[in-house]
Design a protein around this nucleic acid. Sequence first.
DNA 1: GCCGTTTTCGGCCCGACTGTTTTCAGTCG
Length: 571
Amino acid sequence: MKNKEIIRSFRLAVSLLELHDENPFKIRTYSNAVANLERVDVPLESLQISDLEHLEGIGKSIASKIFELNQTGSFPELDALLAATPPGVVDMLRIKGIGPKKIRVIWKELGVETAEDLLQACENNQIAALKGFGSKTQETIKNGLLYSESSKGKVHYATVEKYSNELVSFLQTNLQTNLVAVAGEVRRRLEIIETMLFIAAPPDPLQVPVLLQQRPELQFDEVKSGPFVWRGQETQTGVRVEVKIVAADSFYNALFQYTGAAAHLNSLYNDTDCLLQLVNQQKFASEEEIYQQAGLPYIQPELREGRQEIAWARENQLPDLITDEDLQGILHNHTTYSDGAHTLATMATYCRDQGYHYLGICDHSKAAFYANGLVEHRVKEQHREIDELNQKMSPFRIFKGIEADILADGSLDYNDDVLRTFDFVVASIHSNLKMEEKKATERLLGAIQNPFTTILGHPTGRLLLQREGYPIDYKTVIDACAFYKVIVEINANPWRLDLDWRWVDYALSQGVLLSINPDAHSTGGYHDMHYGVQVARKGGLTKEMTFNAWPLEKVTNYFEERRIKALAEVK
DNA sequence: GCCGTTTTCGGCCCGACTGTTTTCAGTCG
């Protein structure tokens, strides 16, 4: 069992223990164990019970539970807790804004055991009438339910990327043709995927369902399928799968038609004709040929959303999109100083060995107590270690950064004397996420105006498919970043991808630089940068405007100049 | 349930906010 799955099981156990009103100290122990397990960087399944017991926060009891999880996929106490809880109540734990205590009340007092009943209870005002509840809590629950309902069957792009490539290879190999490709949302690199769509031109259409039947993870939906379309579901993720079967000479027409969003296909490429009409008129031997026929340069799939790519193409102004290989360094990363899994030295070495030239360490600041945020003397300690490593690892460079919490009033949680010791500062909101647009925007503006703020971190705090970000006035925030020369982060974590790519072109139009930051909490986290690049490309981001695609020297100078300017301002 | 002893019991991480209260419990990060 992977560490992540083990941790997930214990997290569930924590919630269930809370739900069943168990001893709070026992709950705290489990919860501590989760926090400690997150920092373990060896596979837990490789450890014996005696090794497990030596881990911090893990005693005899939890050690044997971890061991049993590995053997059987569960442990008796978890099974017992699950058996004592209706599945619908377990699902309710996912709703943001209410926790186990409130769920317990709803379950016990009202006998609500499913999401449907819960929604009904909200509609009937039964929730608001409960002791300790009110109309706002009821509204929160209702919104949470509707949000999770709307998230059903949807997954993050990162969840399907590898799988969809594998399925293409599988079909190509077994159909003995190269004419199989990913289309649709996945090819356009949308951050959320509802359907994995494939186009295949097999020698014999009947081969496709036969082959797909060999895949145990795929469930066939006979009713929705036809002779030239296979529809079903990938059962691990619940995401829909669709394979369109076409003749070889229609392959590129189909690929084109099922890649672009409707708005792209319906766009006029001259004064009278749209791309869809064009592609219905004749057969093409490549997508390049289609655009050529339309008198346009080739448009990358991720841009085909029907926004302004046609206008760009018509003026020959298509951006030269950023690539994974363009990135020179990795900014905004955590270490064991705060809530990361790997030490500073490990994070630095791995970064260098991946071929990058610089690393920005941005552990949590002191207000983030829950994440072991750095109080002032630990900042100094970290800076000493960075100095030492920089000596050893030169010309590779570690920048002293911090992810400073933006407090409720828009100020940062260190004073200027501390802020001045960093090479750069990523300012992010982590607390009080429930805000009106005006308050959230003003809070961000406060941070943007701080002369020490270098980068604005995950601007909306959203967690895709889990919670919406706080609402912000994007234009005002981006305009302020332009005015105060603050770089905007594209947080590359597949759950965040925040700044949303739909605002990248506006930021660029205002001259705002963007930085693709993984927010890595382990060395593996660096690889999330790939997802950041994907959405950045959708937004039209170029190498020139990607801050961490700049070479080391240029980045060093930028930080230095900004710091000097900040020091002059606060004097 | 874990830990660290004043070493087999007793104590056990925060701070802010919200929504509900009318002094505080629940939730979040």
